[in-house]
Amino acid sequence: MNKFLLSAEGLNKSFSGFKAINNLSFYLETGELRTVIGPNGAGKTSFLDLITGRTKPDTGTLNFENNDLLPMNEYEIYRLGIGRKFQTPTVYTDHTVFENLYLSLGGSRGVWNSIFTRIKPEQKQRIEEVLEIIKLTEKAQWKAGALAHGQKQWLEIGMLLAQNAKLLLVDEPAAGMTDEETHRTGELLLSLAGKHTIVVIEHDMTFVRQISKNGRVTVLHQGSVLCEGSVDYVQSNEKVVEVYLGRKAKTV
Protein backbone atom coordinates (compact mmCIF):
# COMPACT_ATOMS: atom_id res chain seq x y z
CA MET A 1 0.00 0.00 0.00
CA ASN A 2 2.72 2.47 0.85
CA LYS A 3 6.43 2.34 0.48
CA PHE A 4 7.16 2.97 4.13
CA LEU A 5 7.99 0.23 6.58
CA LEU A 6 6.69 2.30 9.42
CA SER A 7 4.43 5.27 9.17
CA ALA A 8 3.06 7.30 12.04
CA GLU A 9 0.58 10.07 11.40
CA GLY A 10 -0.87 12.73 13.65
CA LEU A 11 0.10 11.03 16.90
CA ASN A 12 -0.93 12.69 20.14
CA LYS A 13 -0.34 11.53 23.66
CA SER A 14 -0.64 13.42 26.90
CA PHE A 15 0.02 12.41 30.49
CA SER A 16 -2.14 14.27 33.00
CA GLY A 17 -2.10 17.42 30.91
CA PHE A 18 1.50 17.17 29.77
CA LYS A 19 1.66 16.73 26.02
CA ALA A 20 4.42 14.20 25.49
CA ILE A 21 3.65 13.66 21.81
CA ASN A 22 2.11 16.48 19.83
CA ASN A 23 0.77 15.82 16.35
CA LEU A 24 3.80 13.74 15.45
CA SER A 25 4.20 12.26 11.99
CA PHE A 26 7.10 10.02 11.12
CA TYR A 27 7.94 7.84 8.11
CA LEU A 28 10.59 5.17 7.86
CA GLU A 29 11.78 3.35 4.75
CA THR A 30 12.93 -0.24 4.74
CA GLY A 31 16.65 -0.63 5.40
CA GLU A 32 17.08 2.87 6.74
CA LEU A 33 19.25 3.75 9.74
CA ARG A 34 17.46 6.70 11.26
CA THR A 35 18.81 8.66 14.17
CA VAL A 36 16.40 10.53 16.40
CA ILE A 37 17.72 13.30 18.57
CA GLY A 38 16.12 15.94 20.71
CA PRO A 39 16.45 17.56 24.12
CA ASN A 40 15.16 15.91 27.27
CA GLY A 41 11.40 15.60 27.29
CA ALA A 42 11.18 15.96 23.52
CA GLY A 43 9.16 12.76 23.43
CA LYS A 44 11.77 10.35 22.04
CA THR A 45 11.17 7.52 24.48
CA SER A 46 7.42 8.19 24.55
CA PHE A 47 7.46 7.75 20.78
CA LEU A 48 9.09 4.35 21.09
CA ASP A 49 6.51 3.47 23.77
CA LEU A 50 3.76 4.21 21.29
CA ILE A 51 5.33 2.12 18.52
CA THR A 52 5.93 -0.87 20.74
CA GLY A 53 2.49 -0.80 22.32
CA ARG A 54 3.62 0.13 25.79
CA THR A 55 1.23 3.06 25.71
CA LYS A 56 -1.57 3.84 23.31
CA PRO A 57 -1.84 7.23 21.57
CA ASP A 58 -4.82 9.46 22.26
CA THR A 59 -5.23 10.06 18.54
CA GLY A 60 -3.31 9.24 15.37
CA THR A 61 -2.39 6.18 13.32
CA LEU A 62 0.53 3.78 13.40
CA ASN A 63 1.23 1.37 10.56
CA PHE A 64 3.93 -1.22 10.15
CA GLU A 65 4.05 -3.13 6.88
CA ASN A 66 0.35 -2.41 6.38
CA ASN A 67 -0.48 -3.67 9.86
CA ASP A 68 -2.40 -1.31 12.11
CA LEU A 69 -0.42 -1.31 15.35
CA LEU A 70 -3.04 0.45 17.47
CA PRO A 71 -5.19 -2.53 18.48
CA MET A 72 -2.13 -4.70 19.14
CA ASN A 73 -0.44 -5.25 22.46
CA GLU A 74 3.26 -5.44 23.19
CA TYR A 75 3.92 -9.04 22.27
CA GLU A 76 1.78 -8.96 19.14
CA ILE A 77 3.75 -5.97 17.90
CA TYR A 78 6.98 -7.74 18.80
CA ARG A 79 5.90 -10.74 16.77
CA LEU A 80 5.52 -8.51 13.68
CA GLY A 81 9.28 -8.04 13.88
CA ILE A 82 9.71 -4.89 15.92
CA GLY A 83 12.41 -5.24 18.56
CA ARG A 84 13.37 -2.72 21.17
CA LYS A 85 16.38 -1.99 23.28
CA PHE A 86 15.46 0.04 26.32
CA GLN A 87 17.15 3.18 27.57
CA THR A 88 18.34 1.49 30.74
CA PRO A 89 19.61 -1.98 29.94
CA THR A 90 16.76 -4.39 30.48
CA VAL A 91 17.96 -7.97 30.43
CA TYR A 92 16.98 -10.97 32.51
CA THR A 93 19.52 -10.52 35.27
CA ASP A 94 19.00 -13.91 36.87
CA HIS A 95 19.40 -15.77 33.56
CA THR A 96 22.69 -16.48 31.88
CA VAL A 97 23.76 -14.55 28.81
CA PHE A 98 23.12 -17.67 26.76
CA GLU A 99 19.59 -18.03 28.16
CA ASN A 100 18.88 -14.36 27.51
CA LEU A 101 19.66 -14.88 23.85
CA TYR A 102 17.82 -18.18 23.74
CA LEU A 103 14.64 -16.52 24.97
CA SER A 104 14.99 -13.90 22.27
CA LEU A 105 15.40 -16.28 19.34
CA GLY A 106 12.60 -16.30 16.80
CA GLY A 107 10.09 -19.13 16.67
CA SER A 108 6.97 -20.12 18.51
CA ARG A 109 6.02 -18.17 21.62
CA GLY A 110 3.33 -20.59 22.79
CA VAL A 111 3.12 -22.11 26.24
CA TRP A 112 2.97 -25.75 25.08
CA ASN A 113 5.79 -25.26 22.69
CA SER A 114 7.92 -23.80 25.45
CA ILE A 115 7.34 -26.88 27.58
CA PHE A 116 8.13 -29.54 25.00
CA THR A 117 10.69 -27.82 22.82
CA ARG A 118 14.38 -28.50 23.13
CA ILE A 119 17.18 -26.35 21.88
CA LYS A 120 18.07 -27.24 18.29
CA PRO A 121 21.64 -27.28 16.90
CA GLU A 122 20.88 -24.42 14.51
CA GLN A 123 19.52 -22.34 17.38
CA LYS A 124 22.69 -23.00 19.34
CA GLN A 125 24.72 -21.99 16.34
CA ARG A 126 22.78 -18.75 15.90
CA ILE A 127 23.29 -17.91 19.57
CA GLU A 128 26.98 -18.51 19.19
CA GLU A 129 27.08 -16.23 16.17
CA VAL A 130 25.38 -13.49 18.09
CA LEU A 131 27.68 -14.03 21.06
CA GLU A 132 30.55 -13.57 18.66
CA ILE A 133 29.11 -10.33 17.33
CA ILE A 134 28.50 -8.85 20.75
CA LYS A 135 31.82 -10.22 22.00
CA LEU A 136 30.39 -12.11 24.94
CA THR A 137 31.36 -15.64 23.90
CA GLU A 138 33.46 -16.16 26.99
CA LYS A 139 30.72 -14.92 29.25
CA ALA A 140 27.94 -17.04 27.76
CA GLN A 141 27.35 -18.84 31.07
CA TRP A 142 27.57 -15.70 33.22
CA LYS A 143 24.48 -14.39 34.85
CA ALA A 144 23.45 -11.31 32.88
CA GLY A 145 23.19 -9.35 36.12
CA ALA A 146 26.91 -9.82 36.66
CA LEU A 147 27.87 -8.10 33.39
CA ALA A 148 29.27 -4.59 33.20
CA HIS A 149 26.92 -1.84 32.12
CA GLY A 150 28.29 -1.66 28.58
CA GLN A 151 28.14 -5.41 28.19
CA LYS A 152 24.49 -5.41 29.24
CA GLN A 153 23.81 -2.85 26.53
CA TRP A 154 25.49 -5.12 24.04
CA LEU A 155 23.62 -8.14 25.29
CA GLU A 156 20.38 -6.30 24.76
CA ILE A 157 21.43 -5.44 21.23
CA GLY A 158 22.36 -9.09 20.84
CA MET A 159 18.86 -10.03 21.92
CA LEU A 160 17.51 -7.92 19.05
CA LEU A 161 19.86 -9.71 16.68
CA ALA A 162 18.77 -13.09 17.96
CA GLN A 163 15.20 -12.04 17.42
CA ASN A 164 16.13 -11.13 13.83
CA ALA A 165 13.81 -8.16 14.02
CA LYS A 166 12.90 -6.24 10.88
CA LEU A 167 12.79 -3.00 12.79
CA LEU A 168 15.24 -2.33 15.59
CA LEU A 169 14.36 0.45 17.98
CA VAL A 170 17.50 1.30 19.87
CA ASP A 171 17.18 3.71 22.78
CA GLU A 172 20.49 5.34 23.77
CA PRO A 173 22.78 2.39 23.04
CA ALA A 174 25.91 4.29 23.98
CA ALA A 175 24.80 5.51 27.39
CA GLY A 176 27.34 4.63 30.03
CA MET A 177 29.88 3.26 27.57
CA THR A 178 33.51 4.16 27.18
CA ASP A 179 34.52 5.98 24.00
CA GLU A 180 35.92 2.82 22.54
CA GLU A 181 32.83 0.81 23.35
CA THR A 182 30.68 3.56 21.91
CA HIS A 183 32.64 3.51 18.69
CA ARG A 184 32.31 -0.24 18.41
CA THR A 185 28.58 0.01 19.05
CA GLY A 186 28.35 2.49 16.22
CA GLU A 187 30.18 0.13 13.92
CA LEU A 188 27.90 -2.69 14.90
CA LEU A 189 24.81 -0.64 14.14
CA LEU A 190 26.25 0.49 10.81
CA SER A 191 26.98 -3.09 9.87
CA LEU A 192 23.38 -4.02 10.59
CA ALA A 193 21.89 -1.20 8.52
CA GLY A 194 20.50 -2.46 5.23
CA LYS A 195 19.76 -5.91 6.58
CA HIS A 196 17.55 -4.37 9.24
CA THR A 197 15.74 -1.11 9.54
CA ILE A 198 17.04 0.74 12.57
CA VAL A 199 15.90 3.70 14.64
CA VAL A 200 18.51 4.97 17.07
CA ILE A 201 17.79 7.48 19.76
CA GLU A 202 20.90 9.19 20.97
CA HIS A 203 22.30 12.17 22.83
CA ASP A 204 25.99 11.80 22.17
CA MET A 205 26.63 13.93 19.08
CA THR A 206 29.94 12.26 18.21
CA PHE A 207 28.11 8.99 18.12
CA VAL A 208 25.26 10.51 16.11
CA ARG A 209 27.73 11.80 13.53
CA GLN A 210 29.35 8.39 13.36
CA ILE A 211 26.18 6.41 12.69
CA SER A 212 24.30 8.91 10.56
CA LYS A 213 26.98 9.27 7.91
CA ASN A 214 24.63 7.94 5.27
CA GLY A 215 21.36 8.15 7.10
CA ARG A 216 18.89 10.75 8.05
CA VAL A 217 18.47 12.48 11.37
CA THR A 218 15.13 13.46 12.85
CA VAL A 219 14.99 16.13 15.52
CA LEU A 220 12.12 15.97 17.99
CA HIS A 221 11.08 18.94 20.00
CA GLN A 222 8.12 19.18 22.39
CA GLY A 223 6.61 16.02 21.01
CA SER A 224 6.75 16.80 17.32
CA VAL A 225 9.28 16.73 14.49
CA LEU A 226 11.29 19.91 14.35
CA CYS A 227 13.29 19.04 11.27
CA GLU A 228 14.67 16.10 9.36
CA GLY A 229 17.63 15.61 7.05
CA SER A 230 21.31 14.77 6.93
CA VAL A 231 23.34 15.33 10.03
CA ASP A 232 25.01 18.38 8.53
CA TYR A 233 21.72 19.87 7.48
CA VAL A 234 20.25 19.31 10.89
CA GLN A 235 23.21 20.72 12.70
CA SER A 236 23.14 23.88 10.68
CA ASN A 237 19.39 24.32 10.97
CA GLU A 238 18.71 27.49 12.93
CA LYS A 239 15.70 26.17 14.76
CA VAL A 240 17.64 23.15 15.92
CA VAL A 241 20.55 25.24 17.03
CA GLU A 242 18.16 27.39 18.96
CA VAL A 243 16.25 24.71 20.84
CA TYR A 244 18.79 22.00 21.23
CA LEU A 245 22.25 22.37 19.96
CA GLY A 246 22.53 26.01 21.00
CA ARG A 247 25.79 25.97 22.83
CA LYS A 248 26.82 22.55 21.65
CA ALA A 249 26.82 23.47 17.96
CA LYS A 250 29.99 25.46 18.37
CA THR A 251 31.82 22.85 20.36
CA VAL A 252 30.98 19.85 18.19
Binding site: E74, Y78, G83, E99, L103, F116
Partner: peptide, 23 residues
Protein backbone atom coordinates in the same frame (compact mmCIF):
# COMPACT_ATOMS: atom_id res chain seq x y z
CA UNK B 1 12.50 -26.43 30.23
CA UNK B 2 12.26 -23.25 28.22
CA UNK B 3 8.96 -22.78 30.03
CA UNK B 4 10.87 -22.62 33.28
CA UNK B 5 13.15 -19.95 31.82
CA UNK B 6 10.17 -17.87 30.79
CA UNK B 7 8.52 -18.45 34.15
CA UNK B 8 11.51 -16.95 35.94
CA UNK B 9 11.76 -14.20 33.34
CA UNK B 10 8.18 -13.23 34.16
CA UNK B 11 9.13 -13.12 37.82
CA UNK B 12 12.17 -10.91 37.27
CA UNK B 13 10.93 -8.60 34.54
CA UNK B 14 7.45 -9.13 33.30
CA UNK B 15 7.50 -6.12 30.99
CA UNK B 16 10.63 -7.35 29.29
CA UNK B 17 8.93 -10.68 28.66
CA UNK B 18 6.18 -8.90 26.76
CA UNK B 19 8.85 -7.14 24.69
CA UNK B 20 10.38 -10.52 23.95
CA UNK B 21 7.11 -11.51 22.31
CA UNK B 22 5.77 -13.83 25.00
CA UNK B 23 2.18 -13.48 26.17
Amino acid sequence: TKFGLIQRAVRDSENRVLFSGYA
